[in-house]
Write a protein that binds this DNA or RNA. Structure first.
Length: 681
RNA sequence: UGGUCUAUGGUGUAACUGGCAACACGUCUGAUUUUGGUUCAGAAGAGUCCAGGUUCGAGCCCUGGUAGACCAACCA
């Protein structure tokens, strides 16, 4: 077999290049560095899988380092949750580290910087310092304390550490370059005073290092070879390197920072701040609410570690901002659960079904397959009787030929049981169906081996026996937000897009008795409905199931009227008419539409032409003229230019040699559309 | 008005030194099916942001644009 070449992502490629250039493989070392100020989410999973995946790939250690340099936001609860989530995902870190372990070393290095005249104590207000910092387009200026003597700086810094000053009164700054084009290099702060107990060091320290000062140096202490972070830290790399330069010992390994794009998921938000807001406003019940994109939320919802790792794997790593559609995540969990979940039956919206020719009071125990995907999974007992519940949605008195379910006069199979035929209905005064009466083909029992048992009928329904069914609460979840990218709107707060119907609780669902003994981590497929798992609030007296995800449903797509979910999210219109992208110039929009012009026909062609003509109103001759030179093979663009030209001429644009030449060329072109447009002029 | 980065089907990623634009999801057919699930077979969908240039040949190299993201917390 030829070896399948797995393409490497750009980080893996970078490491391969380093190795090829002579970097010793045993020096490879990675780290995952969360701040313990919130729960891990699916975006962190990408980083976890990247770092630990690299570790597995190269047999290199991966540290878990808590970036705990800001006691005002961090808590032990989060440390514990983070550890639990990483382990649950199936990864094991080499060493559990804390930035706070390095506070003394960081302090000593800071003193060294002061002695070398590379750091100074500043006592201005934050506003004053911001003022001096300038803006991205204007350079900053030096503050009044920038040239304090080394002795004075040393004294002040020591007193900061000793707790002589109030929070916010003094900071230690690096002396770099107030005119740098990189704002971060304009004398960044190294230390500030925070009067709050730290979850590990208590009140031992009252000065705390800033991220930039702590992070690279911590990587250096741990001898991390490749320090991977998200794109927003790109600008910090220059500072990261500058700090390393100050303390670097050439006999040691020098860490490298590289950046990759954050992973966004559609219909949710992914920043700890926003997730925290959802928790604090009680929009959700907690960090592990099954609607949350947190690892703990997904776990409670029924996602498996395998599915999340698969998702990270299949999503890939790159450097461009993107929003991955949830359908990919859903694919990953369905793929996993299809192979492993035990098949059972449960009725969420029951209607009573009576089998009139089944002996009254009779009960039999049938056998149900645990998982058709796995022949070794065995069977379980399934009680049957003459009075059942079926899904209300599975019956219609009369329906078209595309409806495969129960109707009056039609046959369907009850899964793992008999073939039945609808005979009549009983209704209440309001006309609602209260009972469906039918007859069974008593020879057709599944697995009985009779000829009738293998008869083919069009539909199969799930059901439960009323006298044997157990009751349970079932929670169904819809997406938390109605907008694809709720936090991408400059003028609107993401909370405005919260889906008011994201949770649907069914207080009394009827399940087959087999489910009575379900355990917390068991995964089930309620046949024809979806995948379900026990919620942590469940008890043996009152069972609670969470719906993880529905089955793919091609019927719901065909019959949107009958089966549409309550919240059909409206996908944003893809700037069809060029209106959505207000920023894009008309001529650019015309080019975009024109490009595909030759692929269109009929109505679409006419619509495209109309769009171009409309946009052309806003185009000047100066903008259009360059397009006359468009390569001959790019017919679409030439047609678009021709249409635009027609509009311009109609508005009084005078003809000239350039225009005549373009029309001339158009008339003699091989493309009929182009010729037609040229003729119109 | 600055700096840095990014741009490939609807979505997410590939394409090694310039050589037939590939994979997965999604969508649509058809077959199989005691789950309208699964599985299997197939289809549609890209002129690689735009315009030039170099080259026998450009998604990739060069020039000039455009759009988006990030950067002025005593957050990370």
């Amino acid at each position: 077999m030829t070896e399948e070449k797995e393409s490497l992502n750009f980080i893996e490629q970078l490491i391969a290049d380093d190795l090829a250039a002579g970097f010793s493989p045993e020096k490879l070392r990675f780290r995952f560095p969360p701040e313990p100020n919130g729960y891990l989410h699916i975006g962190h999973a990408a980083s976890i899988c990247l770092n630990f995946g690299l570790g597995e790939m190269h047999n290199a250690p991966v540290n878990l380092r808590f970036d705990d340099t800001n006691p005002s936001k961090e808590e032990q609860e989060y440390v514990d949750a983070i550890k639990r989530d990483i382990q649950w995902l199936g990864f094991q870190w080499a060493t559990e580290c804390y930035s706070s372990d390095y506070f003394q070393q960081l302090y000593d290095w800071a003193v060294q910087l002061i002695k070398e005249g590379k750091a100074y104590v500043d006592q201005q207000s934050a506003e004053a310092m911001a003022e001096q910092k300038g803006t991205p387009t204007t350079p900053g200026v030096a503050g009044p304390f920038r040239d304090r003597s080394v002795e004075e700086n040393l004294d002040l810094f020591e007193r900061m550490k000793a707790g002589e000053f109030e929070q916010g009164s003094y900071v230690l700054r690096a002396k770099i370059d107030m005119a740098s084009s990189n704002m971060l290099m304009r004398d960044p702060i190294l230390y500030r005073i925070v009067r709050k107990a730290h979850h590990r060091t208590g009140t031992e320290w009252c000065i705390y290092p800033m991220y930039d000062w702590a992070h690279g140096e911590s990587d250096y202490v741990e001898q991390i070879s490749h320090s991977l972070c998200t794109l927003e830290f790109k600008m910090h790399r220059e500072l990261y390197d500058w700090f390393l330069d100050q303390i670097y010992d050439p006999t040691k390994l020098r860490p490298k920072q590289r950046e990759f794009a954050r992973r966004n998921l559609s219909y949710t938000v992914m920043s700890k701040r926003k997730l925290l807001e959802l928790v604090q406003t009680k929009t959700v019940t907690g960090w592990d609410d099954p609607r949350m994109p947190t690892i703990s939320g997904l776990r409670r919802r029924g996602y498996t570690p395998e599915s999340i790792r698969k998702f990270s794997d299949v999503s890939g790593i790159s450097k461009r901002d993107s929003v991955t559609d949830v359908s990919l995540l859903e694919f990953c969990i369905r793929e996993d659960l299809n192979k492993t979940a035990t098949r059972v039956m449960g009725v969420l919206d029951p209607v009573k079904l009576v089998i009139t020719n089944y002996p009254a009071g009779k009960t039999e125990i049938l056998s149900a397959e645990n998982n058709p995907e796995n022949p070794n999974s065995g069977t379980h007992d399934l009680p049957f009787s003459g009075e059942l519940y079926i899904e209300r949605e599975d019956f219609k008195e009369e329906a078209g030929s595309k409806f495969f379910r129960l109707t009056l006069g039609n046959e369907v199979r009850l899964k793992s049981a008999y073939i039945i035929k609808g005979e009549s209905v009983v209704k209440d005064a309001a006309g609602n169906i209260t009972e469906i009466h039918c007859t069974a083909d008593l020879d057709s029992r599944s697995g009985s081996g009779t000829e009738a048992s293998t008869r083919k009928v069009k539909g199969t329904l799930h059901w439960v026996s009323i006298q044997h069914a157990i009751k349970a609460e079932v929670r169904e979840y819809d997406r938390l937000f109605l907008d694809e990218a709720p936090d991408s709107h400059e003028d609107r707060n993401f909370m405005e897009f919260v889906n008011p119907d994201s949770l649907k609780v069914i207080k009394e669902a009827y399940l087959e008795p087999f489910l009575k003994d379900a355990n917390l981590d068991d995964k089930f497929q309620f046949q024809r409905l979806g995948y379900f798992t026990l919620d942590k609030e469940s008890s043996s007296e009152s069972l609670v199931f969470n719906k993880t995800v529905g089955l793919r449903d091609s019927w719901a797509k065909q019959a949107p009227v009958a089966a549409a979910p309550p919240n059909q999210p409206v996908k944003q219109q893809n700037n069809a008419g060029g209106q959505a992208q207000g920023q894009r110039s008309a001529i650019n929009e015309i080019q975009k539409i024109s490009k595909k012009y030759t692929n269109l026909s009929g109505d679409k062609l006419a619509a495209a032409r109309a769009d171009i003509a409309k946009l052309a109103e806003e185009v000047s001759y100066e903008e259009l003229a360059p397009l006359f030179n468009t390569a001959a093979k790019k017919v679409g663009t030439r047609i678009g230019a021709m249409i635009t030209l027609g509009v311009l001429l109609a508005h009084g644009q005078e003809r000239n040699a350039e225009i005549d030449a373009f029309i001339e060329a158009g008339l003699s072109d091989g493309n009929e559309e182009l010729v037609a447009e040229a003729k119109k002029i």
